[in-house]
């Protein structure tokens, strides 16, 4: 996750409290989604950004996960994400996200 985004997530969490923040990812690959999810839960694994060593433990989902999909209007989802859902390897993204959540999410 780039340094600017790490800073934004950190600032928003400080402002609103971790229990009120959900991070939604749109990464194209499971590995990249996992790294971003790890960053906002267990801290920046590359130790380069503002979240290095900061364990926010935020709830985090990918836009193609059923947890998110079931919460939004089906028509809007289809318009905005339907195409990418077809292109991405959804199963491996879900698996990766579940693995990160089960280890590090506090809320």
């Amino acid at each position: 996750m780039d340094l600017e985004n790490q800073k934004r997530v950190k600032d928003l969490t400080e402002q609103h409290g971790g229990e009120n923040v959900v991070v939604l990812l749109g990464a194209a690959e499971a590995e990249a989604a996992g790294l971003a999810a790890e960053t906002v839960t267990n801290g920046d694994p590359t130790f380069a950004g503002p979240l290095a060593g900061v364990q926010l433990g935020l709830r985090v989902f990918h836009a193609v996960e059923p947890d998110f999909k079931n919460e939004v209007d089906a028509g809007v989802f289809d318009d905005q994400i339907g195409m990418m859902e077809m292109v991405l390897d959804v199963d491996s993204i879900v698996e990766e996200m579940n693995s990160i959540r089960s280890q590090f999410v506090k809320y």
């Binding site: 590995e31 990249a32 990418m84 077809m86 292109v87």
Partner: peptide, 26 residues
């Protein structure tokens, strides 16, 4: 570098849009 195959990803997106427009089979 972990950025994937950029043209390939673009072609997949164009094809997926084709499927949504019923111009292409899945």
């Amino acid at each position: 570098a972990g950025a994937g195959d950029v043209p390939e990803a673009n072609y997949k997106m164009i094809a997926a849009l084709g499927v949504k427009r019923n111009e292409l089979e899945r």
